[in-house]
Amino acid sequence: MEEVIRLEKVGMQFNLSKEKVDSLKEYAIKLVKRELRFQEFWALKDISFAAEKGDRIGVLGLNGAGKSTLMKVVAGVFRPTEGTVMKKGVIAPLIELGAGFDMQYTGAENIYLNGAVLGYSRAYMRERYDSIVEFSELADFIDVPLKNYSSGMRARLGFSIATMIQPDILILDEVLSVGDAKFKKKSEKRLLDMMDTGVTVLFVSHNLDQVKRVCNKAMILDHGRMIDFGDMERVTARYKEMTA
């Protein structure tokens, strides 16, 4: 099988300054008083794993375990402090739906803008425009500025765009919990359809049942370290024990 994602000894360090210094005056004062202390914090440490094409990996862990940070590292939003990230193909990050939406732009304009953010041409988006609008069920509001959308509507639009293009890697960070029950059902079906086409999925969820339904592999993160990775059944069972 072909590897599409490989992380090797990835670590991500943040400087947690006690207070955020972001004015020149503060900086100068702190510099003189030697109070510019940073608390080093490793949000991820020593993460190594590989995903093959078509793998659907559930990422489990408590709040603050580093799940979102890991997703952002894979998506390329964060550059890891150490280690290497290799990935092949187009990534559709559904980390927060509608990344890069402009609130003043209308829904229609945002479809093209969002497509461009993900690296697609206008022509490519035009071909898919109708099916995106249809799937989002927002045809009546598509010429309304996004600031007048409800958060559920924004999420629906974001989800429709990200899943209508054909990414090679799909990153889902708790996005299935948005929308009403009907849309939730519809979006889950859509994802399952996509998975049949061989897309690789990283799936963050607190819902163990959902992970069991969707994934074939799973990993557990704890305080920035990967403590288990492998077959879904085994790992989810261990996670259940851990959190029990």
Partner: peptide, 11 residues
């Protein structure tokens, strides 16, 4: 101004 985009997707 583009903070929200920078935080979520690589550009």
């Amino acid at each position: 101004q583009n903070e929200s985009m920078i935080k979520k997707v690589y550009v």
